[in-house]
Amino acid sequence: MGVHKEQTTLVIGGGAAGIEAARMLGQAGYPVVLVEKSNRLGGVLNQLASSFPRWEDPVKFVEPRIKDLEQSASVKVLLESTVIGCQKTENGYQVQIKNINGAVEELQVGAVIIATGFEMMDLSGYGEYGHGAFPNVYDSLEFEAVLKEWSAGKKPEKPPVVAFFKCVGSRDRSKGYPYCSKICCMYSAKQAGLVKDLLPEAKSYVFYMDYRASGKEYEEFVRSVIEDKHVRYVRGRPAKVLPEDDRLLIRCEDTLMGVPIEVRADYIVLAAAIRPSRGTTEMAEMFGLETDAYGFIEPEPFQAVKVQERVFLAGSCGFAVETLGALQQGAAAAAQAMAVLNQAD
């Protein structure tokens, strides 16, 4: 019995998880078509100023992988393209892929890896924090761009006060989602620490209910942000942001003291809840995949990444996951695709 490498695997989404899956399959010599709707690979990683828990530059992590893909003879990358239709066939799926010029390509694939990722919750329902109403209130991804600017040397004239609010939309069944978005504790610590690295005279506050740092080196990372970078953690979920002169007055309860606490900040960064991206919703619908109550793609019981016969997920389309987890799932999805393409008769 030989190894079968005829059938193509379709990878939808060119972020960390999709890239990793395509790369593995390519390394093993399997034909891959990687479809990415934007004009570059890397997904959210392209937007990030740094990473946790080792302060590595995400670019250094994306670049070699993209090079692998470019050098691989069996991987075809389709940028600015989307999957617009699929039909189940005997050995997989017939899919239609549309590029930016409107041209539609037909493709027969033996396995599909969905890696369509997440988006941040729209914060217009959180008027108390003034996102969209007051200047200098950002969601965490928007703030990565500010951090990149500061990293590039375009720093504010005066050292600012920066406040990070965790759990905005997460753990909130009134206006958001009841779940914990899992990655915000870590990236908020990263952002708060980076502020102090870039602008040592700045003040950096993290408002928290609790911090969840269960991962290798995660607890040490948060502690070092507090102890070595001198980020001040305030326990309490902020209640209200009021514009005051040119600053933002934060009203909160210090729940350890049980007294009100006020901070006047120049920047407020809201760790918005992670929810399935539009692409995730569309692909789940198109391929007829199980989803949970929030629209995240649901694997089969006791399966890591298998969603249904010949369909696998990788990354945040299944639930919020950090970069390392996205890589793990990408690798797992690639392995499962290889397995299904080589099933013993």
Partner: peptide, 11 residues
Amino acid sequence: ALGAETVTWGH
């Protein structure tokens, strides 16, 4: 709609 201007304020 009546032609007045309204200020942005916190309270």
